[in-house]
Nucleic acid binder design. Structure first.
Length: 432
RNA sequence: UCCGCGAUAGCUCAAUGGUAGAGCAUGCGGCUGUUAACCGCAGGGUUGUAGGUUCGAGCCCUACUCGCGGAGCCA
């Protein structure tokens, strides 16, 4: 058997014979000339079958082909601007591998429920290919960014004994004789242990939130990357976040331009993602809301609509820092200049895509942290190991978490995160 | 959990309270450069479920189920 040729490499085969294996994406016929669109996962290729150039058997085989049937076509490769994909094959032979029967996703519009029920098939469409390739590029550039800066990848456990943050609801499961275990909602606390051990680490993995959120920004299972750096203060944390965003957006613009074009993404705002990003305080953000006439009350956290209103003031992501401590997590350090404020930062993506990064400088004083645990009614015993990090050589340290799906949604310009992960898990969807 | 909107052919949608239609998909036929091809013909329905109002309900009313959007919460 000759070496396998993929559609993405067809430029090397112009004027030569090749065999491509794949699935039928679509077909058209016009009398004694027939066209088929083959996809092989790397691209699409238009095959042309002219009756007088092929055997009757091959010509008739075309007529039995149905959408998503698997087949191999052989013939001469030719560049042709008329063809979807840019290349054409003058087909000499068609080998049918398996005929598909009544493939449900036709080349016409479908509803969300219908497509979500068939997500395993929907993944075959060009739009989903583009989104998931951008997702891959984002994940690759995330790892590249941290690996290139000497961060250690530190995997945090999925099963945890207690909440990392008191506020969210946790998925609960039985754990042998040890009682209840919970699916992690953040690897951060373990990341802090890693930072004390290795200086700078990043945790990258799935996280779970049993919130009954039903919005375009929420999944119950989502991926998060969480860097944690010893001796970094809040400003260092923001410096890291903006360099990080510049890196991943830059990589997608450079390496996935074709996919962004498929998605009809206007890249104007993406090209603005260069450091420095605007930094405003919580109070300045509240002032923006006031000026725009919203009924926001100072002291609350921002809702989805508030975030959109704030981000509309900027043509790139904006960092909002120093939130009221009472709306933030127990582990965040207070601002020494104002004990009511937490040294926290949220990065809001433009165009209403909401919070993509949440971070903070962590409380590094043993007594203060213990007090915060009690204030939040968290079981001290479950956090004993975490308190150890303050008993033995505590240092200032900071980190943040970036939600991968929201980032994909923003960069692709989607209106819902459900298409940013192969098999989304949402409050009312567990299948396929 | 709460608020709003929706459910009609395989899919996407029409249909003044009065005979349920179209496009796509499917099947058959036509066309030598098609681009979600096009043209002709055909098959395809207990209008989400259960009640109610009415001479008559896809349409009006009630409840339920499912879905979508949003709120709260959050990345």
């Amino acid at each position: 058997m000759s070496s396998r040729v993929y559609i993405e490499n067809l430029a090397d085969y112009v004027g030569r014979e090749a065999t491509i294996s794949g699935w039928l994406y679509n077909k058209r016929s016009s009398g004694k000339i027939r066209f088929l669109i083959l996809r092989d996962g790397t691209g699409v290729l238009q095959g042309v079958i002219v009756k007088q150039n092929v055997s009757e058997k091959v010509f008739n085989a075309f007529d039995t082909l149905t959408q998503e049937s698997s087949l191999r076509i052989s013939g001469t490769v030719r560049k042709d601007d008329r063809a979807p994909g840019g290349y054409e094959m003058d087909v000499k032979d068609v080998e049918i591998i398996a005929l598909a029967n009544d493939y449900p996703i036709t080349p016409k519009e479908h509803g969300v429920e219908f497509l979500m029920d068939r997500r395993h098939l929907w993944l075959r469409s060009q739009r989903q290919h583009a989104i998931l390739r951008v997702r891959h590029e984002i994940i690759r550039s995330i790892r590249e960014f941290f690996d290139g800066r000497g961060f250690l990848l530190m995997d945090a456990p999925i099963f945890t004994p207690a909440a990392c943050e008191g506020t969210s609801t946790l998925f609960e499961t039985e754990y042998f004789d040890l009682g209840k275990a919970y699916l992690t909602q953040s690897g951060q606390l373990y990341g802090e242990a890693g930072a004390m051990a290795f200086g700078k680490v990043y945790v990258f993995g799935p996280t779970f939130r049993a919130e009954k959120s039903k919005t375009r920004r929420h999944l119950t299972e989502f991926w998060m990357v969480e860097p944690e750096v010893a001796f970094n203060d809040l400003n260092d944390d923001m410096d890291l976040a903006e360099e990080f965003l510049e890196h991943i957006v830059g990589k997608v613009l450079k390496n996935r331009a074709a996919e962004l074009k498929t998605l009809e993404r206007n890249t104007k705002f993406l090209e603005n993602v260069k450091k420095p990003l605007p930094r405003i305080t919580y109070d300045e953000a509240v002032e923006i809301l006031r000026k725009k006439g919203t009924s926001f009350e100072r002291g609350n956290d921002f809702g989805g609509t508030d975030e959109t209103v704030i981000s509309e003031e900027f043509d790139r992501p904006v960092m909002v820092h120093r939130y009221p401590a009472k709306v933030k997590a127990f582990y965040m350090k207070r601002d020494p200049k104002n004990e009511d404020l937490a040294l926290a930062v949220d990065v809001l993506a433009p165009e209403g895509h909401g919070e993509i990064i949440g971070g903070s400088q962590r409380e590094d004083d043993y007594d203060v942290l213990l007090k915060r645990l009690h204030e939040h009614n968290l079981p001290e015993s479950a956090f004993d190991w975490y308190l150890d990090l303050r008993r033995f050589g505590s240092v200032p340290h900071s980190g943040f978490g970036l939600g991968v799906e929201r980032t994909v949604s923003w960069i692709c310009g989607l209106d819902h995160v459900r298409e940013t992960i192969p098999f989304p898990r949402m409050i009312y969807r567990l299948t396929p």
